[in-house]
Design a protein around this nucleic acid. Structure first.
Lengths: 215, 215
DNA sequence: TAGATTGTTAATCGATTAACAATC
DNA sequence: TAGATTGTTAATCGATTAACAATC
């Protein structure tokens, strides 16, 4: 697993591999060849073998890959066994939905607290957690060794809050705010820009309609 | 705008351009050069010019780009002016959050209805809409010319529901279900796999910790 | 052993960056 | 006109696919 510089393109495909392998495991499939997996996932077998070989050989010539072993290895690469402490900043619709809907714990993310600047929400129970005021966030983050913050606040405050959190020791952001965070290079940021996604959808619909008209 | 085959890499960057141009417009910046924009957005000026030129020339030699014109053109390319009729399928946490949180109307997406199979939710008011039972969905889609469905249902039902909706005339999916839809090639699917995103975050954190240990 | 399939090298394809001529 | 900056061609880089030798 001495992986140096794996491209983000490869990383982005790993969760999908994991999903398919999980399903195969559930269906009690023991072994699979890159050829079979490629037909299932609609990617080339070549790509599959290249991707896996970025991390060392998980297969066996003449046999293929053992599903459960491959699954475990990819899970390990993705760091799913590691434990992280996470807070949600912003207890609006989206923050609440993520708290309830994402199964954080299953992936080693321990949900430790949720914060909002809106007084009306203070003390509101979300999952088994009470919404706390923003001015208690700094102390909480330091005390509880929080390393990840989920940002579900409006873009106006997001950049500043992120800087504040970095100063308290937060190492990574799952950023739903529609803005680019301004954080040091060693801080990890995974952006989920839903409106960007919606615009891509919009573009592709427009395209597909125009193509039809052309005919 | 006679664009043939623009790569998805380019398309994915357009919403970000639009965001920055919107901010520049709000700050009353009239013109900008690819050089200035590149410094602001931390991408190469070359890429910016290449990206824009996929759609024809929006700039002027010796001057740069007129912010408001460029903004409008990109908005047009993304099809933001077009009108679409949209339903949300799945009125759980995520479905409700999207209904309340996404400003669908601002991007030409008219939110027309929300459906769920859970009886307990029938009639519940979300935004200005009442949750309807799934068995009324087909008729509703046909009657109201729905062309987009947002899928916020568990993955178990998603594939079947998508097929059903395609048969009723739905042309595009914004898919939050953690599964690959099985739909014809001319149907547009934009996936938002939140748990994949969380795994990428997990991987990158693990990597960044390991790098530090190496030193 | 023979057949199958990986791991890996080589070839191709596409996307990004650099360079510069066109032109406002 | 001279200077600036685009639009576009050419060079480079990286990612994907193809091919095949290694080996189970």
């Amino acid at each position: 697993m001495e992986d140096k510089n794996i491209s983000q393109a490869v990383i982005s495909r790993l969760p999908r591999y994991l999903r398919y392998l999980g399903e195969l495991k559930d269906s009690n499939v023991e072994r699979i060849s890159s050829q079979e997996l490629s037909e299932l996932m609609k990617v080339t077998a070549s790509q599959i073998r290249q991707d896996f070989n970025n991390f060392g050989g998980f297969g066996q010539q003449g046999y293929g890959y053992k599903v459960s072993y491959l699954y475990d290895e990819i899970a390990k690469i993705l760091g799913i066994n590691k434990t992280h402490h996470l807070i949600i900043v912003g207890a609006g619709n989206l923050g609440q939905a993520l708290a309830n809907y994402m199964n954080f714990e299953r992936r080693g993310f321990h949900f430790k607290g949720i914060f909002d600047s809106n007084e009306a929400l203070y003390g509101k129970k979300i999952r088994d957690m009470y919404v706390q005021p923003m001015n208690e966030m700094e102390a909480f983050v330091k005390e509880n060794d929080i390393d990840i913050a989920v940002l579900t606040i409006p873009k106006t405050g997001a950049v500043k809050v992120a800087e504040q959190l970095v100063n308290c020791g937060v190492k990574a952001f799952w950023n739903f705010a529609h803005v680019d965070l301004n954080v040091p290079d060693d801080i990890v940021v995974e952006n989920v820009h839903l409106s960007d996604s919606l615009m891509r959808l919009s573009y592709n619909i427009t395209q597909s309609y125009e193509e039809k008209e052309d005919k």
